[in-house]
Amino acid sequence: MILMRSPFDWADRTRSQQDIAAEITAGLRGVIGVRTFAIQPNSLGIRGAGQGLTVALVGDDYGRLADVATVLVEKLEADPRFGQIRLGYDTTQPQLFVEIDRARAEDLGVEIDGLGEAFQAVLDGSTVGTIFLDDDSYDIDLVATTDPVNDPGDLERIFVTSDDGQMVPISSFASLTERAVAPELTREAQSRSVSITAALTPELALGDALSEVQAMADDLLGEDMRLVPLAEAATLGETSSGLVFTFAIAIAVVFLVLSAQFESFVSAVIVLATVPLGLACAIFALLLTGGSLNVYSQIGLVLLVGIMAKNGILIVEFADQLRERGRSVR
């Protein structure tokens, strides 16, 4: 069940969206038997955003991935900087498994070939053909006429013929067990995956949280496993890796435009000389106010380059006009 609430007008509330989500999560955490969590949508439209930190353990075996993920969840729950932790692998769906002892079946003279199809017909039915009537087609299903098999004891009343013509109960060489499996199996990067989602407190930024989880997982992951960031964490990694390249392209484009406008490389260098100082002041402001270098602050830094270049253009243009009127530099 999903409940949605539109935010109040900014003038009518004194709490932030994060404070409201934290209060809702804390209040619903005490409800036994119900798993609830509050999602805060973001303005960038990132898939899976608003849920905090989301990562996936990727490997070759779901069972081993689930075991490692369970231990990792216990470590995260012990850290008070993380909020509610959710494991995306729940074995809540019962499933029947049929295991055949091939050596025992051979000793009893039971042919293994075709035994799988026979089991399917007995347990769930099997499609053996199709009949066409006018423009419609209908499947022909082969089903057992006995009662359905849903208990290991039911195998004792199902018999197959051995090589010498005797009737052998299936229970003498096959076993039926019920196990709990996950109702949905996910994949990431074309590999089996188990996802973990952790809500974040104001004490821990998204990038720092990802680093903490990676450090915790280093001692748990096997050689065939790896940790993959998802949702906002993946977007942050992509933008952070291309941040230097983006700034380099932005400064190069601004420099070329300024050089063409002023018809002088010296004036362009003078304008761009203010950019490092402005970026340094922006980083200092983030550290002073306790902010983090996230997607939004990176966009702001790119915009800051353009704003400072615009202000520099006005100042240099005004200075050039004064010099053309005969005013000295001093």
Rank of each mutant, 00 (worst) to 15 (best):
A250L: 10
V257P: 03
V271G: 02
L210Y: 05
V194L: 00
V269S: 11
G222E: 04
F262C: 03
G165D: 13
V168M: 09
Q214S: 15
P276S: 08
D164V: 14
F245W: 11
E203R: 11
E223Y: 12
L221F: 02
D164S: 15
V181P: 03
L277Q: 13
G165H: 13
G207K: 05
G165K: 12
S175K: 11
A260G: 13
F247Q: 09
A273H: 07
T177I: 12
S191I: 05
A174T: 03
A252Q: 12
R187D: 05
S195A: 10
E263Q: 13
E263V: 10
F247S: 01
L236G: 03
L210T: 01
F173W: 05
E232G: 06
L230S: 03
L210V: 06
E178P: 06
V269K: 08
L236K: 02
S241N: 11
S193K: 04
L277K: 12
V254I: 13
R187E: 08
P276K: 07
A180P: 10
Q190F: 13
V271P: 02
V257E: 08
A231D: 05
I170L: 12
A231W: 01
P202M: 02
P183W: 08
T161D: 13
P169C: 09
F247V: 09
F245K: 12
V228K: 01
D218I: 10
A268C: 09
P183T: 09
F255C: 04
E238D: 11
A233F: 02
V181G: 08
L230N: 06
D208W: 07
A209D: 04
P229E: 01
A180D: 13
D208Q: 14
